[in-house]
């Protein structure tokens, strides 16, 4: 199975190399900065942080 061996050896080199290169590219182009702001993405003006939704059971029944 020489073809498979070739793929195996190739991938051992290529996969980590590509991973390192893409990480380097990402950090250089500033894509890894200020991560935690993304935590606010589920919210918007209509349903801002602090407003609970789906409160339909019990006393809150509309």
């Amino acid at each position: 199975m020489p073809v498979i061996t070739l793929i195996l050896l190739g991938s051992i080199v290529l996969l980590p190399a590509a991973a390192l290169l893409s990480l380097r590219w990402a950090s250089r182009s500033g894509q890894l900065g200020r991560f935690d702001r993304a935590a606010l993405l589920p919210f918007d003006e209509e349903e801002p942080v602090g407003r609970a939704t789906d409160q339909i059971l019990g006393d809150n029944r509309r």
Binding site: I7, L15, A19, A26, Q31, A38
Partner: peptide, 20 residues
């Protein structure tokens, strides 16, 4: 923080590792 391509590559490479 629009790291779409990075994400895409990461997703492919992780599965490729165990596929190999």
């Amino acid at each position: 923080m629009s790291y779409g391509p990075l994400l895409f590559l990461g997703i492919l490479f992780t599965l490729a590792s165990s596929w190999v």
